[in-house]
Structure formats: C-alpha cells, structure tokens
C-alpha cells in the first residue's frame, strides 16, 4: 500500500535524529528498545549482580504447601528481584533478562534473513520485470495468505531432532517474512529503474548485479530499514508464540513465550509469574512497533498516520 519515497542513505541518520527530537512516541520506543537490548546484552552481568542464574532450582524459595513462590507478589525480594518460578524456584529476573537475549537474537536474526531474501527477490522482480516479476508477485501473494503458523508448528515435528531449534526458528520465521519486504523493494525498484542514473549505468554496460549494488541499493536503504524495523515485533511475537505452544525454544533455554505458557496454569494464584515475562514481551513488541511507525513517518512523509 505504501510506497516510501527515495531518501539517500546518508540522510537516514539525520532523519532519525530529527524524528527522535520531534516524536515522543518514537523516542519512548527507542528508549525501551535500548533498555531491553542492554538487558539482553548484559544478562550475565545483571544476574551476577543479583547473584542468581536462570537454570538453578531453588526450592527453598518456594512455599512447600502450594508449590508456588514463598512470600507476597510471587516472591519478589532483594534476593529474587522478580520473584521465582513456581515448582522449580528458578529466578524469574534471570529468566526474563536471558529470555530477552533469546527473543532479540531470534527476532533480529530472522529479520536479517527475510531482509536479505526479500531485497534480492524484490529487486530482481522489479528490475527484470516480465515473467520473473509475475512469478515473484504471485509467490509473495500465496506466502502472505498462507497459514504459516500451522506450517511452522508441523515443521517443528518433522525436522530431525539434531537440527538446532534456534537456528530452525530463525530460518523458518525469516523465510516466511520475505514477501512483505520484497513487495516494498519491488515497488521502489520499479520507480528507480526509470531514473536516468540507472539507465546510464545500464547503457555503460553495468551488469544487473553492479546496477543493484551501486545504483539501486543506496536508494533502497530507507524503505528497507523501515519495513525491517516494522517486521521485528512480528518475528519476536512468532518465536514467543511457537515457544508458547511448546514447539519453539526447547527447555531449559529461557524463553518468554515458554514461561508465559507455564504461567497459564498459575494465572489464578500467581499472577506475578505472568506479569514479568508478559510485560517484557509486550514492551519489546510495542517498542519496535512505535519506533518503526515513527521511522516510517520520518522517512516517508506521505504515510504519516498521526497528523
């Protein structure tokens, strides 16, 4: 629907800085991303300061009668900042910050996969036109409507067990993400290829790959950055959803989705066990969404939704 206009890569940084000064929502999103990202990077340091880790069972922090955390608010204390997990007593703060690492790594890596795929496929379709374009557009339409979550759930069962699950998640989530990026890139290349500098390069004998590298790509960064940022929350959500359903990140690697899934059974008695991973997941997807929205408004004035 939206066709971002061409903005040279040079000014992207300046446009983002201007946006952060002007747009309070985008700033809030950026700050949240920074905080969560920092927590993910420094997860080991933070849990070392707290004196906990996400794997050790601490049954002494549990109430022996119920199996739930001892103490109020899910066992929140100076020792366990976010309380502990029911039945195991594993430290919830450690699970949440290490879960941030899982979420961000998979979300970002999957986005990278779909950006690379989508850019190459979209540029090829826009530049070559003809049957290449028709096949790509058609395939993208099929992919966009495909019940991919069901496919991903089923795929998890048929892929042999020795294939690393995080890698599988990255590849599968990334693979299903290319169509939205290819669409934007294709639309952009369609307008770019009519411009004189692209024609000139072609007439001078540049190969399609050279045209792509030196003429098209520098003009594609702005729309690619916008659509990539906006697809990160979806990818983070997908990983969490698959883990929630029990076919994503296998235990004991911390994952927000899987912890939330465990929290389903405790929601009536231990709401705090749901609250911390839940709010972390919500904040992560929300932050990327508002930041991406702001980015789009800043780089493409036409699609401004807020004014």
């Amino acid at each position: 629907m939206s066709h971002p206009i061409a903005i040279p890569a040079r000014s992207v940084g300046r446009a983002v800085a201007a946006m952060l000064r002007r747009d309070r929502w985008a700033l809030a999103g950026a700050v949240t991303i920074a905080v969560l990202g920092l927590a993910a990077v420094a997860a080991d340091l933070l849990t070392a300061i707290e004196g906990q880790d996400p794997y050790s069972y601490r049954t002494e922090a549990l109430d022996p009668r119920t199996g739930g955390p001892a103490g109020a608010l899910g066992g929140v204390s100076g020792e366990h900042w976010f309380g502990v997990e029911p039945l195991t007593g594993r430290d919830l703060f450690a699970i949440v910050v290490h879960g941030a690492r899982t979420s961000f790594l998979i979300g970002l890596a999957a986005t990278l996969v779909s950006v690379v795929l989508g850019t190459l496929v979209g540029a090829a379709a826009g530049y070559r036109g003809g049957w290449v374009d028709r096949v790509v557009t058609w395939t993208a339409d099929v992919f966009l409507g495909f019940p991919y979550l069901i496919f991903m759930i089923a795929l998890g069962a048929v892929v042999p067990g020795h294939v690393s699950r995080p890698l599988l998640l990255v590849l599968v989530i990334g693979f299903f993400g290319w169509p939205s990026i290819a669409r934007i890139v294709r639309a952009q290349v369609l307008t770019l290829k009519k411009r004189n500098f692209v024609s000139a390069a072609r007439i001078l004998g540049a190969s399609p790959w050279q045209v792509f590298r030196t003429e098209l790509l520098p003009n594609l960064w702005a729309p690619i950055i916008v659509v990539a940022t906006l697809s990160i929350p979806g990818n983070i959500g997908l990983e969490a959803a698959l883990s929630f359903l029990g076919v994503g990140i296998p235990p004991p690697t911390p994952s927000w989705g899987r912890t939330i899934s465990t929290a389903v059974d405790w929601v009536s008695t231990e709401p705090m066990f749901l609250f911390f991973p839940g709010i972390a997941l919500f904040l992560a997807t929300w932050a990327f969404t508002v930041f991406g929205d702001g980015l789009r408004d800043a780089l493409d004035p036409k699609t401004d939704v807020r004014r």
Partner: peptide, 29 residues
C-alpha cells in the same frame, strides 16, 4: 485469514478448547 487460523490455534490453547490447534499439537508430540 491465514493468521486468523494461527491466532485461533493459540487462543484455543489459552482457553483449553478442543479445536484444530489441540489436534495439531498432539500430532506434533
């Protein structure tokens, strides 16, 4: 419509409804 089906699968798990999602997860296990 595709993601509606996916969303339904997740919602079924939350509300323990015996729908397609349960069938699928059982088949996976």
């Amino acid at each position: 419509l595709g993601s509606l089906l996916g969303g339904a699968v997740i919602t079924e798990r939350v509300f323990s409804m015996p729908g397609l999602g349960g069938l699928l997860i059982d088949a996976v296990n």
